[in-house]
Design a protein around this nucleic acid. Structure first.
Length: 890
DNA sequence: TCGTTGCATGGAA
DNA sequence: TTTCCATGCAACG
């Protein structure tokens, strides 16, 4: 007995420091001290205490008073007596026990309320039952419940058990085990629940006692007991010793037993789990309420497992969220005791063919047998149908840590017809201690989850579960979902979480894959800029994380990007570009264009409803409009103060344009077509492809022009010149076979881009193919090297698809990024205004002899979508003129 | 060439 | 910064 406790009991003075009265001969019990002893009070103080007005009476002027967030009642939070008179709220603040209980009873919003309720109810009960009641141990068992005194003392002092016993460890299994079979009083047990639930759940293995419970597989389950039952009928529970020795020593330490009928129940059955973190913090808050004893330190330090299993703070996402259905699914045997352990949403990897289910480390260490060798152990798991599976429970060393996996789960996964996004649950079934693996299909998300979904992502178009759960459908279907997901981030819960997990956790890599397919580098903002509501659509605009989402009843369609502007009279108008003649036509402001717009569609201006009609806009006016377009198209651009460097928006729009292309293939509505001649671009795009005027009508680049296009052309010309010189020198060697030994692969590849009509390199000429093959035959890396010289620059010669052909090992994503970089840089360098009126560049090569030979470089900025017919012949001079005939269609 | 295995990597928390 | 963990990927059979 510590000096404190000794003082509590031996002193003749009331333990209340604010009271000088002598205790009576039979002092009345007050709150539980940290030592586990009960404060002994004089009659007056005891009476006040028992009325629950101790702090009101004696601590009125003390610090620590706060206000209940619900009822506003002042609550003292600063002393041991009041330690359980309040509940710490997740969002901050406190709640008095009455409100806490009320909210918990009413509250469907908390699924871990049990702990909270237990907490609260106990606090209440604590008032109802003087401390001495806690010392009563109804019932008895053959094996005394033993626990380290210090541990208990360190916990909730007021609710401490009187009986304490040494901590017992079952070293045979390497798992600390608690032999408990005697019944504890309900308050005692509930106190234990309170005390240990969060600890078991969050810190189980850290605390020997808690660890025992935890290890034995009853983590927190009892705490899911509906509060009502706690309050109305204090449940007599028992810590029962697991007679059988389940595999790996995992046992259920105690279960809820209705002594009236002897029925064994499963705690938590009626509870819907709380997506919110449990009460760990609250408990910790309480536990740390002025308590920092060595005993507590001991708790926190814990005793590591022999195999190093130590901390076990389960992440909320792994908390078991079992429903009745889940439990029934696991076992129809009502006499069975199901102890939910944890759950995990299957990732793509988990559900994949590889057959490895990655286990959360802490869960694995908490609930699965300790393994010290990477090879691990075979683990027998029963599925919900009663079928037994044997998985290999093992780990890999990983960053000085471990990565636990269950191997060989594929048959089971397939048997359950699970896929990524579905949830597998792990439980322990008693008697027998069987490990049970249940599942919850994504489509059967709980109501609370759905509620959360509704709360969190209303306004976001969602897809069916099947689609979401099916990774194969993501790339095709979930573009908008992807956008939403991106914006919503981790706030999505449950199904959202699933989306997050399935898509989000697939995360970058999946996204990259998608990018590979459709160059999905898209933010929702840009997407919104092009999304058009479907017919008869009534949109709900939802603000999520500062982003506005338009909720579509039906799938949105991609509309025609237009430029919104205000005319001289202040009237709002918009400009749309004819896809045939590229002329800009003025439209009413509120017109929603389909994705395809031509002059003939211009019913608003009959005089300009045909392509031959003159464009109303001058080049200068159009130039002025472009920034507006950008602003309208991208808030990001605006945020970036329209810095030319910020081209993400354009990229996004381009990407969406690509979506439109895909849409033509059936993925998207047929109406979702390319919005410009070049599907990657849109009106206002600065690239040379999108905004070219009809051939010959645009301004020509001067020979001194240093724009990126010209520089690129010049650079390429130099390359070709070198190439030709080499060729000539080789020909002079009169050895045609030396062609295969031409040293510079880049040149060879460039050769493939040679301008036609020069005899050196029609892209389809056998000659060119030969050269390409030469390059390919050497080293794919060398092929890759053809890119690097132009890294960061637009290389009009690059043919991504050809590059990929040439380099099987090349990463298309890298290629894409290269081009993206190139595009970025190009757009930075190329003034948008400069580009206007110069869309498609026709490179007019001036032959040395003076003749010219026009060649259209239709897709110089396109990411490899267009054909490239370039001339390998070295022009003595060149100029660039516009061309209207180019239409790179990707 | 394909499937498996074990580890490495890097994004996310 | 550390840890977790989803996934990539090389080595191997």
């Amino acid at each position: 007995m510590t000096s404190t406790s000794a003082a509590a009991s031996s002193s003749k003075i009331c333990f209340n420091s604010n009271c000088e009265e002598l205790k009576s001969e039979r002092p009345r019990k007050g709150w539980r001290l940290r030592t586990g002893e009960l404060a002994e009070l004089c009659d007056r103080c005891a009476a006040v205490f028992e009325k629950g007005r101790f702090c009101d009476t004696f601590h009125l002027n003390a610090a620590g008073w706060r206000t209940c967030e619900s009822c506003g009642k002042p609550v003292h939070c600063g002393c041991i007596v009041s330690a359980h008179a309040f509940t710490l709220l997740d969002a901050g603040g406190i709640e008095c026990v009455a409100c806490s209980r009320k909210n918990a009873v009413l509250g469907s919003n908390s699924s871990w309320p049990p702990s909270l309720l237990l907490h609260s109810s106990l606090s209440e009960r604590f008032k109802e039952y003087p401390a001495k009641g806690w010392s009563q141990l109804p019932g008895s068992g053959s094996v005394p419940w033993r626990q380290a005194t210090s541990l208990l003392n360190s916990s909730t002092p007021q609710l401490e058990l009187h009986s304490r016993a040494p901590y017992e460890v079952d070293l045979t299994t390497g798992i600390d085990r608690l032999n408990v079979s005697d019944r504890l009083s309900a308050p005692s047990l509930e106190k234990k629940k309170i005390e240990e639930y969060p600890e078991r759940l969050m810190n189980g293995p850290l605390k020997p006692f808690a660890r025992d419970i935890h290890e034995n597989g009853n983590t927190g389950v009892n705490c899911e007991e509906p509060c009502g039952s706690c309050l109305a009928k204090p449940q007599l529970s028992s810590l029962k010793e697991e007679s059988s020795n389940p595999p790996f020593g995992l046992t259920v330490p105690y279960t809820s037993t209705d002594e009236a009928n002897g029925q064994i129940g499963v705690y938590g059955t009626h509870l819907r789990p709380n997506p919110q973190p449990p009460l760990a913090n609250q408990f910790q808050g309480n536990l740390h309420n002025g308590l920092d004893s060595p005993a507590e330190a001991q708790i926190h330090n814990g005793r590591p497992r022999p195999d190093g299993r130590g901390r076990n703070q389960l992440f909320p996402r792994y908390w078991p969220r079992f429903t009745d259905q889940d439990l029934q699914q696991i076992s129809a045997d009502t006499n069975s005791i199901i102890t939910p352990l944890f759950e995990k949403m299957l990732s793509a990897s988990d559900a994949g063919r590889i057959g490895r289910l990655v286990l959360p480390k802490k869960c694995a260490e908490a609930y699965f047998p300790p393994i010290s060798q990477p090879e691990g152990l075979p683990l027998k798991v029963q599925d919900s149908k009663g079928k037994e599976w044997i998985f290999q429970f093992r780990f890999w060393p990983n960053n000085n840590s471990r990565m636990y996996v269950l191997e060989g789960v594929t048959p089971c996964i397939q048997n359950m017809q699970l896929q990524a996004g579905d949830v597998v649950t792990f439980s322990r079934l008693e008697p027998g201690g069987k490990l049970v693996m249940g599942f919850r299909k994504a489509s059967t998300a709980s109501a609370s989850e759905q509620e959360n979904e509704a709360k969190n992502i209303s306004g976001v178009s969602t897809h069916g579960d099947a689609e979401l759960a099916d990774p194969t459908s993501w790339s095709k279907v979930d573009k908008s979902g992807y956008i939403a997901k991106e914006a919503l981030g981790t706030k999505l819960a449950a199904p959202n979480k699933r989306k997050n997990t399935v898509l989000g956790l697939k995360s970058k890599r999946l996204r990259i894959d998608n990018e590979d397919l459709i160059e999905l580098k898209l933010t929702w903002e840009e997407a919104q800029g092009l999304l058009r509501p479907p017919p008869n659509h009534v949109a709900n605009v939802v603000l999520i994380e500062g982003f506005e989402f338009e909720e579509y009843e039906d799938a949105p369609v991609l509309g025609k990007p237009t430029i919104f502007a205000t005319n001289k009279s202040g009237e709002k108008i918009q400009w749309a570009q004819c896809e045939d003649c590229f002329k800009w036509r003025r439209l009413p402001f509120d017109v929603l264009l389909p994705s395809k717009f031509t002059c003939s569609s211009n019913s608003w201006d009959p005089e300009r409803s045909f392509c031959s009609a003159a464009q109303e806009l001058t080049v200068e006016e159009l130039e002025n409009l472009v920034p507006n377009c950008n602003r309208a198209a991208s808030k990001k651009m605006k945020a970036a103060k329209q810095e030319p460097e910020n081209v993400d928006a354009l990229e996004g729009l381009d990407t969406l344009a690509n979506l439109a292309i895909l849409g033509e293939g059936g993925v998207l509505p047929a109406s979702s077509q390319a919005t410009t001649k070049h599907p990657r671009h849109r009106p206002g795009c600065s690239c040379i492809v999108c905004i070219q005027p009809p051939s010959g009508k645009g301004p020509k680049h001067k020979q001194t022009c240093t724009c990126n296009v010209c520089q690129t052309v010049k650079r390429r010309f130099r390359t070709l010149m070198l190439r030709r010189e080499k060729k000539q020198s080789q020909k002079e060697a009169a050895d045609t076979t030396h062609k295969k030994q031409q040293p510079s692969l880049p040149d060879k590849v460039l050769d493939s881009d040679a301008l036609p009509g020069t005899g050196a390199g029609n892209s389809s000429s056998p000659n060119q193919k030969k050269v390409i093959n030469e390059g390919l035959g050497d080293d794919s890396n060398r092929v890759k090297s053809t890119v690097s010289p132009f890294k960061g620059q637009i290389d009009l010669n690059i043919q991504p698809e050809r590059e990929e052909e040439l380099s099987p090992g090349s990463d298309s994503v890298c290629m894409m990024r290269l081009f993206q970089d190139a595009t970025d840089k190009y757009l930075r360098q190329q003034s948008i205004l400069n580009s206007i009126g110069n869309s498609n560049i026709e490179v007019t090569r001036t032959q040395p002899g003076g003749s010219t030979e026009g060649e259209k470089t239709s897709s110089s900025v396109d990411h490899g979508a267009g054909q490239r017919n370039t001339n390998t012949d070295p022009p003595a001079n060149f100029s660039i003129k516009t061309s209207a005939s180019t239409s790179a269609t990707g």
